[in-house]
Simulated scan of single mutants.
Amino acid sequence: MLLNKFILADIIDRAIKEDLGYGDITTDNLIAEDAQSKALITIKEAGVAAGLEIARSVFNKYDPDLKFKALLTEGDKLDAGTVLAEVEGSTRSILKAERLALNFLQRLSGIATKSREYVELVEAYPAQIVDTRKTTPTLRMLEKYAVKVGGAKNHRMGLDDCVMIKDNHLKAAGSIKNAVEKIKANISHTTKIELEIDELPQLDEALEAEVDIILLDNMSPEELKKAVQIVDGRVILEASGGITKENVAEIAASGVDIISVGALTHQINSIDIALDLN
């Protein structure tokens, strides 16, 4: 996905205000104003780097005169010790921006790395790995960007992206038929409709409602296989709920089209990345 520069600028502005406050009392009272340095940003463990352009934006927001040079293309699997980028210019500016830039790089690289792991686990099957809305509030755009860098796909960005009728919607509407009919009466013909079901007996009613995507929630691999046989390619089938690295290949083998994994963004170990002055 593309990074919206206006949203990105707002995220960085708020992050700087949180971190910098009224100034860096350590750096400003220790480092000479005219001091110049060069720094290397290095990944300390194997993984997939993501967020280099976000890091560049952080450094340039602190000081437009800083020179940031990315040394690789995001999305490649990297060995520990790989130098990701160089930063050159005011020592004060580099030190002030260091932690914030690394925070973005480390978290986004963690997401990209986990996304790549899931993608590789199902590469023998047609199923696509996608993310969910289980993201850090206000950071969804960046986290979904990292998912794409890792090789997975994005589900909807927000509630306005597509119709997704979930279990609580069905309880409120009374039935699948009622929910889908009312939705179709009120939305544009260009908007896709996804319907979540959690029991196989609901599948026939879901097919009769003629939705675009059926989400099979927390179903066993055996149930997923039965659903695939019943549907026989008539609609897109998405598996969700309880997806782990241990069971994702078996779920992909069921024949579903999409596997949505909340863990891509909400169960993350940040990748160890460091900045060192030369």
Results as ranks from 00 to 15, higher is better:
184 K>G: 07
198 D>F: 10
53 E>C: 10
107 R>V: 12
43 I>K: 08
49 A>N: 11
274 A>K: 12
46 A>D: 15
105 L>G: 11
195 L>W: 05
217 D>C: 01
114 K>P: 05
219 M>H: 01
182 K>M: 02
255 G>V: 01
136 T>R: 10
172 A>P: 09
10 D>Q: 15
62 Y>R: 13
246 E>G: 04
164 M>I: 14
261 V>R: 01
149 V>C: 00
218 N>L: 04
58 V>I: 14
170 L>R: 12
204 D>P: 00
36 Q>P: 03
49 A>L: 05
130 V>T: 14
59 F>W: 08
99 R>Q: 05
232 D>V: 04
63 D>Y: 09
221 P>E: 02
24 D>I: 06
2 L>H: 13
43 I>Q: 08
31 I>T: 05
69 K>D: 12
177 K>V: 13
91 T>N: 06
189 H>G: 07
246 E>P: 04
39 A>W: 07
122 V>W: 10
66 L>D: 08
121 L>V: 01
104 F>H: 08
149 V>I: 15
200 L>R: 04
277 L>Q: 03
22 Y>G: 04
130 V>P: 00
236 I>Y: 03
146 A>H: 07
199 E>F: 02
249 A>Y: 01
225 K>C: 03
46 A>H: 11
220 S>I: 07
68 F>I: 10
70 A>Q: 13
162 C>E: 15
277 L>H: 00
41 I>D: 07
54 I>A: 05
